[in-house]
Write a protein that binds this DNA or RNA. Structure first.
Lengths: 228, 228
DNA sequence: TAGATTGTTAATCGATTAACAATC
DNA sequence: TAGATTGTTAATCGATTAACAATC
């Protein structure tokens, strides 16, 4: 049976490969805006993003038909549309778990907050860290985490804890109602359906570079520009 | 004309989607080894990696036919084969550029070095940082970078510099003969063919989480476990 | 032998891209 | 009008996965 298209709402399902590229376009467009560029063609975007121009046009077509034939796309308008599509017009409440090097850097640096992901709390188990100030936040005790997530409606949890603690912290966050995790621990988390997990594992990145170096050594190197 | 298969060397080209999953299997297998598990089935691996069992078997088949029907795979042997395939039996000389929070953390933490990617130098432009000790290394002046890369045959460069500096540092590294870059700056680098670039952009990761949160809010959340 | 699991085939699904009519 | 560029089609390519013979 073919999908019964509802007449009222037209659910445009953007292919995941395209969703993964939208943030890249957004970054490029933001850069272009800083150089006072107001119009851009799919060809120009393609060069900057290291992809095919047809792919750019197809990706952007999922947002709507916002280009002008013979001219190109308006940078500011495209930025707005990508942000709308990616849900970047909302603020997503974020907490960081683990106040080590990485967790502290993320919290203090402010990049998350400025991109619409305000870091509203930082947790750690270590009693020597609890209560210390990092950036604009006081480190809280891990014991308070579940209650905090529930009462504040936190959307996103950043796991900057040791591998051994990651699964247990993830379980607690999910039990408290969090829906998305950004995991820096080099483990594959087990999570229920419906929870989104993105893993940032530098070991994995490095290993793939190692593979390409090996190919290069065999004289079979091939081009590879991979956006993550 | 069909590809003229050379009789002597059989170049097994592993599909890139499979290459991206091999490090994940490696991580799981390494964890299993710590729990004294010596045999594992494709089904078990599939559960742990959140993928389809047929995919596991197909991915592993690119390494060779190393399983035993009715039994499964030997963990230690599989670890060795994946390492061999990914070029992780070699040591890849690595330098870090940028001695800020991130660059310092990477250098001092030792994770890169222990995984076969020894960090042999750390560079920065800031004269106040040059000469200070981070982990086991003295910060070197960026001026020395090109010569260092050439005379030491460095394989991999880690860019932990501000966005504004990233392209210029990348150009220098490539001119000095480096083949692979791990880029933490939120910019798309322009590089010649044959150079491998992996971008680690936390902003991109977050934005994709934002998208899924938005879908969840619309009651159209779907499962998504993405390994990076 | 009976049960289990691999390795591989082939069908299916999704992503990519050349090409070009539409149109600014 | 002439030139440029989009939006979309359709062909192609690559990735996924159900199914099952091979075989331990």
């Amino acid at each position: 049976m073919p999908a019964p298209e509802t007449t009222s709402t037209r659910r445009r399902r953007i292919p995941s490969a395209a969703v993964n590229r939208l943030p890249v376009y957004l970054q490029i467009l933001t850069d272009l805006q800083l150089t006072e560029t107001s119009q851009v063609s799919s060809d120009q975007l393609a060069v900057l993003a290291n992809v095919n121009a047809a792919k750019v046009r197809k990706d952007l077509s999922y947002l709507g038909t916002y280009g002008t034939r013979g001219v190109g796309y308006e940078v500011a308008f495209l930025i707005y549309q990508i942000k709308r599509e990616l849900g970047l017009l909302s603020q997503w409440k974020t907490i960081v778990v683990g106040a080590g090097n990485l967790g502290s850097a993320i919290t203090a640096n402010g990049g998350f907050t400025s991109r619409g992901f305000p870091v509203i709390a930082l947790f750690d188990v270590d009693p020597r860290k609890v209560g210390t100030r990092i950036g604009e936040l006081d480190v809280r005790n891990l014991d308070e985490m579940k209650d905090f997530v529930k009462s504040n409606g936190v959307h996103i949890g950043v796991l900057a804890v040791p591998s051994t603690a990651a699964q247990s912290v993830a379980d607690d966050l999910i039990a408290a109602g969090i829906g998305s995790l950004l995991n820096f621990a080099p483990v594959v988390l087990t999570t229920p359906k419906g929870v989104t997990v993105r893993n940032v594992d530098l070991g994995v990145e490095l290993q793939i570079l190692g593979y390409h170096e090996q190919l290069r050594g065999q004289g079979t190197a091939k081009q590879a520009r991979v956006s993550v």
